Simulated assay, not measured.
Amino acid sequence: MYTPPFNRADDETELRDFAAAVRVGWLATSRAGAPPAATLLPFVWTGDTVVAHFARANPHWREIDDDTPALLIVTGPDAYVSPSWYPAKAEHGKVVPTWNYSAVHLTGTARVHDDPEWLRAAVTELTDHHEGRRAEPWHVSDAPDSYVEGQLRGIVGVEITVTGVEGKAKLSQNRSDADRTGVVEGLRADGRPGDLGVAEAMAASLARE
């Protein structure tokens, strides 16, 4: 991950919170002699382990041997930044467009799991994680056991042992506070979902400084 010093995010607790809030990421792997493959997967990251699963019909999992190098890319909101939002434009005009975003990259090794007990435990963990914030969460045990067993036959688990974590928050930290405030106001005025997410992240970053 290319990360200028002013965009680097190093606090692992914050990176874990970010990944837990996004809850889904692109798993990319590459095996010698095969083209790179990538799949968007819901996941749970606990300790140094990420748990997820593929649809069995997805050929990606067949490209994963034990300890295959893997990259999980977790991205948050992103947005185009217009130079017209910078007060500096009126001062000297030396401004250009950019794109703001936040991301976490987890690197490590992947292996697949096809054991029914492992799969049931993984699906239960994923479900509890994603349903946990709901007032009346759904549980795997709510469905008939025979139905769950049939669904488990349609998936293959994947486990990633995380060996490296990198975080980046590109939120115009290289601009003046006035320019950054102008971007926040511009993004809020445009009002697109990604724009609003970036605006809130930028506002929080400004408030912490």
Rank of each mutant, 00 (worst) to 15 (best):
A169Y: 14
P42W: 09
T29A: 02
G132T: 08
A169L: 12
T98W: 11
L196Q: 14
G164Y: 01
P87H: 05
V156A: 05
K94M: 14
H60G: 00
T127N: 12
D177K: 02
T181A: 10
V198L: 14
L187M: 13
G150R: 12
K94R: 15
F43T: 07
P4R: 13
P97V: 09
V104K: 02
D190R: 14
T124S: 13
R134K: 15
S82P: 01
H129Y: 14
M1A: 13
D17C: 04
P116Q: 09
Q151R: 14
W26Y: 11
S141G: 02
L152F: 07
E14T: 10
H105A: 02
V140H: 04
F43D: 04
H92D: 15
W26A: 14
P116C: 10
E159C: 04
S176N: 08
A38V: 15
R56V: 13
P193A: 04
V165A: 06
T68Q: 09
G154I: 01
W99P: 04
A34I: 00
N100L: 02
V51M: 05
G76R: 11
D48M: 01
N58A: 14
E209K: 08
R175H: 15
H60C: 02
K89L: 15
G47Y: 07
L119K: 06
G182H: 03
V51N: 02
G132F: 08
G93I: 10
E91N: 04
H129N: 09
R133S: 13
G191K: 10
R16F: 09
D17W: 00
G47W: 07
H113D: 14
A55Y: 13
T39R: 06
N7K: 00
A32W: 03
S82N: 13
W118P: 00
E159I: 11
A19D: 12
G197D: 06
V95H: 09
A110Q: 03
P4W: 08
A110C: 12
I155M: 07
A143V: 07
S82H: 09
G191M: 09
E125W: 01
L187I: 09
A199W: 11
S141N: 02
P144Y: 11
W26P: 00
D66H: 12
V183L: 06
M202G: 03
M202H: 04
V24F: 15
T13G: 13
S82M: 10
W61E: 01
A103M: 14
R208C: 00
E63Q: 15
V158W: 07
G25M: 02
